[in-house]
């Protein structure tokens, strides 16, 4: 690892920007809990009583807790002590694009791996993700790191541990050579 990769003794850490607490962001988990519980109940409605009792017990407690959290958050928002935006989730704002790009790359990685295989997909994912997060700086280092890590992963997971990933161009080629 180079000093750049290790962060370097002189590289200053970026200051943390403390996000404001937002009621609407904190409502996502309890709302998701309520919605999922109602859906879950609909799938056990026809089940025998002994199979229903555990999920109804857990589900009802979840709904009660979630409603209590939502009411508390709504009251806090009404008092003005919390906001009604999604700032808690997206702060710091200058990282929104990077986070969304990383999410898109991750979805792309999982989507493409069945055709390109583990090694090639991992190399492309690591290279693109590192370039995006590092704002295009140190491309040579990133390409070298991505190559080493993808090949290391191939040796460890595919060759040594025989993980049954869909084979791509690289794996097929190497199987022919080896």
């Amino acid at each position: 690892m180079t000093e750049e990769a290790l962060g370097g003794a002189n590289a200053a850490a970026k200051p943390l920007q403390k996000p404001r607490r937002s009621a609407s962001a904190e409502m996502i988990i309890p709302v998701a809990g309520i919605v999922f519980t109602i859906y879950y109940f609909s799938t056990v409605w026809e089940a025998p009583w002994t199979a229903q009792v555990s999920s109804f017990f857990v589900g009802c407690i979840l709904i009660l807790c979630s409603v209590a959290v939502i009411v508390r958050l709504a009251l806090a928002a009404r008092r003005g002590t919390m906001t009604l935006d999604l700032e808690t989730l997206i702060a710091p704002r200058n990282f929104i694009v990077k986070r969304l790009a990383l999410l898109a790359l991750t979805i792309g990685y999982i989507f493409v791996i069945r055709w390109f295989g583990f090694t090639l997909t991992t190399f492309i994912f690591l290279m693109l993700a590192m370039l995006v997060l590092n704002e295009g700086r140190h491309p040579k280092l990133i390409v070298a790191l991505s190559t080493v890590l993808a090949l290391g992963g191939w040796l460890l997971f595919v060759v040594a541990f025989e993980v049954r990933f869909p084979a791509g161009l690289f794996e097929t080629l190497m199987r022919g050579i080896l």
Partner: peptide
């Protein structure tokens, strides 16, 4: 309250799938 909400949310997610006795898929 938030801790219990998170814990019971997890319990509900953990209940996804067929139960061991009746083999009925849920959620």
């Amino acid at each position: 309250l938030k801790g219990l909400t998170a814990g019971f949310f997890g319990l509900m997610i953990g209940a996804i799938g067929a139960d061991v006795v009746y083999e009925m898929p849920r959620g």
